[in-house]
Write a protein that binds this DNA or RNA. Structure first.
Lengths: 350, 350
DNA sequence: CTGAAAGCGCTTACAG
DNA sequence: CTGAAAGCGCTTACAG
């Protein structure tokens, strides 16, 4: 005779509502109600059930509850790059805000690819999350995948890198205002010829707004915008380095360089110094974002602090509000700007 | 007569397997099988079902499928701080690895609080995720919440900040080896009296290993470990600044400072410079981690590159392997060290 | 090759 | 105040 030991699947280990009901001789319905503190359940019954739940180390299975309630208590976040300073700070704000409301956060990174962005949007849309927070990737030229989400009635909020065409709520930094502020600061410091290291020319909102701020600040101060002083560097350090070299060899009288973000601005400082050009003596430099490197580079970088943590926090609050159709979020201006401020440092000290 | 218009709940918008079955006059079972390319389903049937699924923009509801299959296709990650450079790089690796296997990533941050760590561990354990990746918080002094996970048979893998006491798989940087390498490098550069800015003294593994590497490297080179040259700074810049000031006023012959991470090392450089002490002329400085600031500070910081992206990637692969009880992951050494390498820069150039 | 049925763990209208 | 039943969207042994 052969005895075969069948190992049990051993998959299920967690206590369920049924187990508690069984242990107490009541029905699962009652357990569920008691755990939700339903007013019609007898206080003693509740007490007993709560005790047993604790004793059995019961944790409600939110996935199952969610299936039933058409909710997941989970928000999805799609960003171009998690390890980028800006987005990681943003995620931190999102997580803290979500946590406060008992929401979980699903994070996806597209590595700047729309194809990935589309894939994630589809993947999350099928009952994975209750709403989506998204910052578009650099090569986003279309948004069908996003209008798809809307037609499926999935709440969507864009943050930082947004798209004008999409009629959804947006949380942005004061890109335009900040850009005006820092450009005017350079002008005040006596810069007469300010070059601009620009971001990508795609649909991305913030790159365009920063450029607009730079242009307008020049015009407001009687300085014409000169396209030849602008170089599109996307967000690429190498391109910034080349651009600075080119600019300085073509226009020796450039006395200011402003870059779309701190990474490029720091690269500009390093490049200028390697060319033997004094910063800020001959050329002032400013950036945008107040990254950790801005404080470390020498001279320290003048920049715009734009509070990524708060941008994330507000975007998360907004999406959770939309999920709950919470109208108490103000009269829906469709776009919320998070304050940015000028941080004056050595790179423009004169 | 009063007519009341009842607005439909309008919650459900997504197509289900039932809708497809209905549209095609077959059963949901068949639709499910066809979409999973079940071998026993007629090719023509499959084709029709796939077409209809596409036409109706069907996306399988993984949450529902998961409930049935006792899987969520989701891994949970608990880190002390998302916005910290190291962890954000790690998360990036985790996300890419997970994405490759169609897994989603749920991210939680504890803000260095064990209480939060416990809360998240509990929240995720109730059917939220198939496995958990965790880096312990600084004040973790106990681990009942983690052994709880194990008793619930939830796969758990620790990374970077691990705990010796816990018998689970761990993915770590070569903290000890890297620390030996960089300390010996300083000795080779002629440093005779090397101070150490230490990490927290809690259960955290990597802080202890880096200290051990420093001590052993000294001993191996005939230099005694002198406790008075060590200062516990946790991971706090302010403490590092004070420690450096104190050390230099007490021991004017210190000619090297090594810090548990780059953030503190950079702070050391800045402090030394503010004291008028030449780096590396009078004092060499080294760090650990190769953060972005290491390249920007002047002089550039000599450090250990420890590849956080890869640490995250490997930890994610491992947890997914455990979820699938994939034995092909090697013979389970219980701990995987990710190579680290010395990056020589100006701060130790002599 | 296909379908009906049971069930994952929960919630909630409906009865009593 | 409590329970039985139906059902969220899926999967899968069991029948045919």
């Amino acid at each position: 005779m052969i005895i075969i030991f069948l190992t049990r699947p051993s998959i299920k280990v967690a206590t369920t509502i049924k187990d508690i009901a069984h242990a107490l001789g009541c029905s699962p319905s009652t357990v569920s109600r008691a755990l939700h503190d339903h007013p019609q359940i007898n206080e003693d019954t509740k007490k007993a059930i709560r005790q047993m739940a604790k004793k059995m180390n019961f944790q409600i299975n939110q996935v199952a509850a969610g299936l039933r309630k058409h909710k997941t208590f989970c928000i999805g976040v799609i960003v171009p790059s998690i390890s980028n300073y800006f987005f990681s700070a943003t995620l931190s704000g999102i997580q803290d805000a979500a946590s406060k409301r008992q929401y979980q956060v699903l994070v996806c990174q597209t590595n700047e690819s729309v194809v990935e962005e589309e894939r994630y949007a589809r993947a999350l849309s099928a009952g994975r999350v209750d709403g989506i927070l998204l910052s578009v990737s650099m090569d986003s030229q279309k948004h069908e995948h996003l209008t798809d989400l809307l037609s499926q009635k999935i709440p969507l909020v864009l943050f930082d890198r947004t798209m004008d065409k999409l009629d959804v709520f947006k949380v942005e930094a004061e890109d335009y205002e900040g850009s005006v502020r820092v450009t005017e600061h350079m002008i005040k410091k006596g810069c007469k010829k300010i070059a601009y290291l620009a971001g990508p020319e795609s649909l991305i909102n913030n790159s365009r707004n920063r450029l607009a701020g730079y242009c307008d600040a020049l015009k407001n101060n009687g300085m014409a915008f000169d396209k030849s002083l602008m170089r599109v560097c996307d967000f690429d350090k190498e391109k910034a380095r080349e651009a600075v070299k080119e600019l300085m060899s073509q226009y020796s009288d450039i006395d200011g360089i402003y870059a779309v973000n701190d990474e490029l601005a720091v690269e500009a400082i390093l490049t200028l110094k390697s060319l033997g050009i004094a910063v800020p003596g001959q050329v002032c430099v400013s950036g945008f974002g107040n990254y950790p490197i801005a404080e470390i580079v020498e001279p320290q970088l003048t920049t715009i602090g734009h509070n990524p943590y708060l941008i994330g926090y507000k975007a998360a609050e907004r999406i959770m509000g939309e999920i709950h159709r919470d109208v108490s979020l103000g009269n829906d201006p469709r776009i919320e700007l998070v304050k940015s401020s000028l941080i004056e440092r050595g790179s423009t000290a004169r």
